[in-house]
Computed example of a mutant assay.
Amino acid sequence: MVDLTELMENEVFMAYASYTTIILSKMMFMSTATAFYRLTRKVFANPEDCAGFGKGENAKKYLRTDDRVERVRSPWQPPFYCFFFRLKSVLSNLFLSVYPNGRD
């Protein structure tokens, strides 16, 4: 097992950790911003989300798309849904767990 202080001195691990933190922070911020825009403009994607604003036919008027909400929602989709990003993350994590000091 690798000591934690040894990992903190490793440049490869620190780069991986910092880039991962940036991506995760961006995803969390953008999902919060999307929820804020959806609630303030009362624009929802499915009937379950707008159930608190009305029942039956009254709730259907909230099922629509808005350009401002889509502008906030679209930037965080590529890192979240992209298969290659997930594959790269898994392989990078696997590489760092097997070779914590790089290829020595």
Rank of each mutant, 00 (worst) to 15 (best):
V2H: 09
T5I: 13
M8I: 11
E9C: 14
E9Y: 13
E11C: 07
V12I: 15
M14N: 11
I22F: 15
I23S: 04
S25T: 14
M27A: 05
M27H: 00
F29G: 00
F29L: 03
S31G: 07
S31I: 05
T34S: 07
T34H: 04
A35V: 04
Y37W: 11
K42P: 00
K42Y: 00
K42H: 06
F44M: 15
A45N: 14
E48G: 09
A51V: 07
G52P: 12
G52E: 12
G52M: 12
F53Q: 11
G54Y: 03
E57H: 02
E57D: 05
E57K: 01
E57Y: 00
A59G: 04
A59M: 09
A59W: 04
K60I: 02
K61D: 05
K61M: 08
Y62C: 04
L63D: 06
T65P: 03
D66H: 01
D67V: 10
V69W: 01
V69G: 01
R71E: 09
V72I: 09
Q77F: 11
P79Q: 06
P79S: 06
F80C: 13
Y81D: 11
C82D: 15
F83M: 09
F84Q: 12
F85E: 05
F85Q: 07
F85D: 06
L87V: 07
K88T: 12
V90I: 15
V90M: 12
V90A: 14
V90T: 10
N93S: 14
L96A: 01
S97P: 06
V98W: 08
V98S: 05
P100N: 03
P100S: 03
N101Y: 13
